[in-house]
Amino acid sequence: MPTRGGPLRTLRLFWVFFRVGAMNELQYRANFIVQIFQSAIALGTGLAVLALVFSQTGELNGWTHAELLAVMGVHFLMGGIIGMAIQPNMERLMDDVRRGTLDFTLTKPDDSQVLVSVREFRIWRAVDVVIGAGVLAYAVSQLQTGITVADPFVFALALLLGALMIYCFWLILTTGAFWVVRMDQIAELFEGVYQSGRWPVTIYPGWLAISLTYLVPVAFAVTVPAEALTGRLTVETLALAAGFAIALLAFTRWFWRFGLKHYSGASA
């Protein structure tokens, strides 16, 4: 990501905001309890649906029970990452645009895109990351095929690319707030679409699979990393993911700057 001071600087800023934010959120234990409760319900429902499907059939469009469990694990994991680090920042940005407080961020001597992307962190959503990792580990242990030494690294890379694409998707939509100011429903809209990522996008009809790949990059965020662990991922797909991520980052960068030129702020 092009920044003043480079990626290291971005990481450092992220760390400072993370430390301060996490320190404060740790005081509110009720949120932790609520989060565990929510995650447990989501996990229970997910497992029940999977069990229901596999009580009827041995495999779904070529995916076995264990493999679909892996997809579910990645879905949880990525959902946790989005809810922890991406969505809170974007919601804060929308709020700032509406209330005019983005002015403060824009008068800071640092890259504004970086600043609006690292300010918020919802530590309790880490529960989903942990659950997702647990489900994934169990699923992998149940796989008939087993995994190679390289698979976890490829998986991590695919996961990172997926998260970057989801970030770009969110930031592009949120930048739209410069023009329309109110975009309250984005979160619900995204949540709805993201739910479809619970299943590998390859089971959906073509038009939907394409939308879930290029319009809302759910496929790259969930299915592709899951493919890395289930022996399905080809070099071509990984290269496509990398290419698409870079193109999306570049476009997001351009669009953010374009949006800033049109930002007029909430007048006093």
Binding site: R99, G100, T101, D103, F104, T107, K108, P109, A268
Partner: peptide, 13 residues
């Protein structure tokens, strides 16, 4: 930007 600042009475940073 390092040399300027803005304070707005009706908003908080």
């Amino acid at each position: 930007l390092r040399q300027i600042t803005m304070v707005m009475g009706n908003r908080n940073q």
